[in-house]
Amino acid sequence: MRIITKHDLQAGRKLQRPASVAPILLAMSVLALIMAAPALAPYDPYNVAIGERLKAPGAGHWLGTDHLGRDLLSRIISGIRTTLGTSLLILACSMLIGVPLGLLSGYLGGLCDRVFKRAVDAFMTLPDYIFAIVLSGLLGPGLINLLSAVIAVKWVSYARLARSIVLLEKQKEYIALATLSGVSPHRIVIKHILPHTWGNVLVLAALDLGKIILMIASLSYIGLGPQPPAAEWGSMLNEGRLYYHTAPHLMLVPGLAIMLTVLLANIAGDRLRDKYDVRNKERA
């Protein structure tokens, strides 16, 4: 008989899920870009040089300069950290709040679940943007307040998704057998149910990323996000608005940065959905 070691089992597990490596690599690349952003910028994004103001894209400044003579490329690169970093932080917080709440509510059921469901339904009736604008307005402008307002809007969809997965999984017989074996409820949730949520949560997060980037940029555009001189793509768009006729690149560059990032996020989301969404597999 072949002697099987723990190492074989671990290796087998890795081979079973090679697809899980791609999203991890992608996430690590994005994180590396966010961390390295200041080092990649050719100039100090906050360095004011009035003599260089409103320069068109050229050799010295590849994407031109803004109304205070700051290098636009450096500000766009710096904005990666603000816009994309904030978006990822919002996604992470929304998942960390929503998924455990959804799992708990779905698994416990009863009154707890009914109260939770009503609360979530109440949140879902409010349009995302209006709710976020109202909350940001109440909390006041600033990055932390913007972050809180968007998380308050976004956690609900993760909680709903996690709850629906629990409701589906807890009907299955392996959960009944685990209960019978004496596995405690919290270990049943962590060992048996939580792993089923990751694929769907990842797809939702990837599809949400573009929406969150747009939401942050929109709120910043109307002055509810990070305040000047912070380099944030939405607020840069707003600053460039006044010079649209004389220096259109001030709006075009951050606008294109937002568009391309949202496009890439949506493509990544679609790919992940194709990979993990059960409904797609059933259709195939």
């Binding site: 597990r13 017989e173 057998l177 048996h192 089923h196």
Partner: peptide, 10 residues
């Protein structure tokens, strides 16, 4: 349905 599809048989 009685076996968790994500866990090895062991």
């Amino acid at each position: 349905s009685a076996l968790n599809p994500r866990l090895p048989i062991l």
